[in-house]
Computed example of a mutant assay.
Amino acid sequence: MDTLRAKDPLDALGQIAALERRLDAETEIQVRRARVQGCSWEVIAAALGVSRQAVHKRFAGRTGLLRRNRK
């Protein structure tokens, strides 16, 4: 984080945006993995620190995330 503060603000903002895209992609992967393992939206939401409604709204419409495997 200190290295970002040492940079030109516009360069830093570009790097932050790139990091956010990478984090969003990784979050989607991990949510998909959690659903495949049978985790509920409530459990995933708790892990992300958001409401069940928020996580469901963000991810439920994406391919392969609506249904979970039942064990």
Rank of each mutant, 00 (worst) to 15 (best):
R35L: 08
I29H: 10
C39Q: 15
I16W: 07
A34N: 13
W41P: 00
A12G: 09
L23E: 00
A45M: 02
A45F: 05
S40C: 05
F59W: 10
E20V: 00
A45Y: 07
E20W: 09
V50G: 03
I29P: 02
V31M: 07
T27V: 14
L13I: 12
G49D: 11
A34S: 13
A17R: 13
L10Q: 14
G49H: 12
T3C: 11
A18P: 05
R52P: 03
V55F: 07
I16H: 06
L48D: 02
V36H: 15
R33H: 14
S40Q: 03
I29V: 12
V55P: 03
E42N: 09
V55L: 07
D2W: 13
Q30I: 14
A46C: 14
L13G: 08
Q53I: 01
R22Y: 12
L13F: 11
S40G: 08
A47L: 15
R32T: 10
Q30A: 10
V43S: 06
A47K: 07
G38D: 06
L10A: 15
A54M: 09
L23H: 01
E26H: 10
A47C: 12
A45K: 01
E26I: 11
K7D: 04
R21G: 02
V31I: 11
A47Q: 12
A17G: 13
A46S: 12
A45S: 02
Q37S: 13
I29M: 13
V50Y: 00
A6E: 14
R33E: 12
I16F: 06
G14Y: 01
E28I: 15
T27G: 12
K57E: 08
D24V: 00
T3M: 11
I44E: 02
L13K: 12
S51M: 15
L23K: 01
E42L: 11
D8S: 04
R32E: 11
T27Q: 13
V31H: 03
Q37T: 13
A6D: 15
K57P: 05
E26Q: 14
A25T: 07
L4R: 05
D24K: 01
V31W: 06
E28A: 15
A25R: 09
V55T: 11
R22K: 08
V50A: 00
V36C: 15
E20D: 05
Q30R: 14
A17S: 14
K57F: 03
E42G: 09
A6Q: 15
F59Y: 11
E42C: 10
Q53R: 05
D8W: 01
E20N: 06
V43H: 09
L4C: 03
E26Y: 11
Q37I: 14
L48F: 01
Q37W: 12
R5T: 09
R5C: 09
R22D: 09
R35C: 04
H56S: 00
A25H: 08
A34W: 08
